[in-house]
Amino acid sequence: MINKKKAAGLAIGTLLLSATSLSLSAAELLEKPAGFGVRPLTMIVPFGAGGGSDQLARSMAKAMEEVAGLNFQVVNKPGGGGTAAIPDFMLSPGDGYTVMEHIDNAISAYAKGDIRENPAEDWTPLCMTQITFSQIYIRGDEDRFTDWDSFLAFVKANPGQASMANLGKVGSMELVVMSQLQNALDMKVKQIAFDKPAERYGALIGGHVDVLFEQPGDVRSFLDSGQMKPILTFLDERPDVFADTPTHKEVGADFEALTRFRGFYVKRDVPKDRTEFLAAACKAGFDTEGFQAFNEKKFMNLINSYRDTSGSVKLINEAVQTYRTVYKELGIGK
């Protein structure tokens, strides 16, 4: 494990070196549409510096600089669970100079009626570059239960007692997946709403909650050090890295689990040649060694993490459908 990570670190190092030393000749760069990309572009990140979205945006900005010679100014506009950045994005001129990173939160917010903008129609998705699944984690030294079966037995033996650190936003991917699981297996786990990731992880490690709902890339360091271990994967099949952990389908929950996905958007009225160029730059950036190493470090290489514009639209529309169906069942949203 350590060696693998050293390799990843080195790869990132090489990427940065090559990006800063401008070792690429102009001929290798993607060709820009006439008059575009001459000044730096703005990349809006609707979450704070240092978080998952921010890391992705900065890594992709570097990669696109490498393959297309574009310069990005990354601007964090956190607040309101990703909604506060939207008006600035909508007010920006439709010239392609403003790109926004956003996650599936925007899709659930649209499905629920919290925001008016449809990410598949009012915005043009350039690409999705991170798609990942969720897992349930327990403490490494937990002795009341050690795997999914013993956890389920614990939950049934102590009804209403087991607690899970999770995000609390009504209708979020996290809560939808958990309510689907609980309905399918007729179990009840208390969902405790934590807004900051560090608090969520601290709550599990400190023993204030029994289990944690999270995506593997975000807790990788805890997994490697043995402080946490997964007991359930929300995916159709077991990925190799988590070969010992059962999937939700194997334990008898038959539903298509929603995924977490992060991607990049421009406004709908951006000229077509610029949108296509940016989408191509995103694809080429995704394929760079540096970005691949970044994604691998975040466990984003376990399932296909890339979608182009039409693939993204499909992914978004399907997610909107799923959310709307589940919201109707749960009686939330407008």
């Binding site: 607040g79 669970g81 909604t83 506060a84 008006p87 936003k169 009504v170 807004d195």
Partner: peptide, 29 residues
Amino acid sequence: GTDPVGGVPRFNGGSLMGFEFSSYYLSAG
């Protein structure tokens, strides 16, 4: 802004003296 638990928007829209308003900005608190 947005409540810290359910992510429910609070006081970021409504009407004031007959003037309807709503703001994504205010959802940041």
